[in-house]
Amino acid sequence: MRILVTGAAGQLGIDLVAHCELHGDDVIGLDRAGLDVSDRSAVLGSVTTLRPDVIVNTAAWTAVDACEGDVDRAVRVNALGPRWLREAASLAGAHLVHISTDYVFDGMLDRPYHEWDEPNPQSVYGASKLAGEREVGQDACIIRTSWVCGANGNNMVKTILRLVREQPSLSFVDDQRGCPTFTADLAPMVRRLALDRRSGVHHVTNGGAVSWFEFVREIVAESGHDPAMVHPIATADLDPPRPAPRPANSVLDNAVLRLAAEPLLRHHREPLRELVAHLLA
């Protein structure tokens, strides 16, 4: 299979390209300099020239707070980009896989969100990502994930490993819950769903729901420091407050995979342990 990966310089993009190469795929990874997904002409030109069997769109503007101040950019990248990719995929006969987010939900449910729950984004980022889901259409495979961490790029694990060396104590919110998801596990599932040419929405996260406070304590403990240095605070007490609202409940039920008897990703503590060991080596 010839696989085109957009956003190939991001956390997931880097691991996905490496995983596809490891398995002998004819994979083409394009970062933003190689393909700006918000440029329709560039998208159509690249896809019709390369003629991939599968397009995996990991490209997105994920700066959640910055999106609040630049709605047009968020829409161009996160909504129009998927539109142009769907159009190009149709011309090339390629299957489209699109990566989305837990931010499409408002976080008000008292249970994990499954794929048939009604989205209700509360931020510009979430709204632009939901628009992108609708642009790719029902024939595409939409993969919603959450709290992504990996060996590349910026993420919470890397941030905490830096902060424990700089600060005697840390404070993180204990009223936002989600499932940390690691690209080392996510990338193989993305490839599997892509090669199977799956359609519709799939929630794909590692197991084990935690608050940010609990997750940070786990990171600190894995790094060999005392987790008691981490203290809980409420979202309302953040100073300064974040421009974009965060969903209090970001826990995604991987219902489609579970009900189809597909293997689920591991509990997040296992890949967390592996990632911390790798980053500290």
Rank of each mutant, 00 (worst) to 15 (best):
E68R: 07
K158D: 03
D237L: 14
S223W: 06
T205D: 11
T101R: 04
I99G: 04
E87C: 03
G132W: 01
G150A: 09
Q11A: 15
P82F: 02
L4Y: 05
S223G: 14
E270K: 10
Y113I: 08
F105E: 01
A194I: 04
C20R: 08
I142C: 00
S128T: 07
S171G: 14
G137K: 01
R111V: 07
E274G: 09
N155P: 05
L265K: 04
P245A: 09
P119A: 03
R177I: 07
I143L: 08
P232R: 09
A260C: 08
G150T: 06
V124Q: 04
V54Y: 03
A131V: 00
D139K: 12
N254H: 06
V5L: 08
M156R: 13
D53I: 04
D65P: 11
R192T: 11
R191W: 12
V54Q: 02
G13T: 07
N249F: 05
D15G: 14
L50G: 00
F215G: 03
L193W: 05
W147L: 13
T183H: 10
V136C: 01
R192G: 06
D36W: 00
R40V: 00
V164L: 09
W116L: 15
S41M: 09
C20K: 03
E218Q: 13
V104N: 00
A260S: 11
E166I: 09
A151H: 12
A89Q: 01
D65W: 12
S90N: 11
R266K: 10
D25Q: 12
A281E: 13
R269Y: 08
V77G: 01
R144V: 00
D110M: 10
S146K: 02
R242G: 08
L50C: 05
W116Q: 15
A131E: 11
R144Q: 03
R258N: 10
D53T: 05
P121V: 02
A88C: 04
H23E: 13
A88I: 03
N206S: 13
D239S: 15
R246L: 14
V5T: 06
V220G: 06
N78V: 00
T49W: 09
I28L: 15
L35R: 01
W61Y: 14
V173C: 09
I3A: 12
L193H: 04
L252W: 08
G45C: 06
D31T: 07
V164Q: 05
D53L: 02
L259W: 01
V5Q: 06
S46R: 14
S100M: 03
V75W: 12
D117N: 15
G81R: 00
L30C: 08
D196G: 14
E87K: 02
C141P: 00
V201I: 15
D226R: 11
A140I: 00
R192Q: 12
G34M: 05
N155I: 07
V136L: 02
L193K: 06
G69T: 15
A281D: 13
D65K: 09
S38N: 01
A59K: 00
A261E: 12
R162C: 07
P232F: 11
E118K: 15
L16C: 13
L275F: 09
Y103G: 00
D237P: 05
I142Q: 00
L252P: 10
V97N: 06
N249W: 05
L130P: 01
G224P: 04
L195A: 12
M108F: 08
G207M: 13
N78Y: 02
K158A: 12
E135C: 08
D110L: 12
C141V: 02
V220P: 03
A60V: 02
R2M: 06
Y103F: 15
T235G: 14
R217A: 12
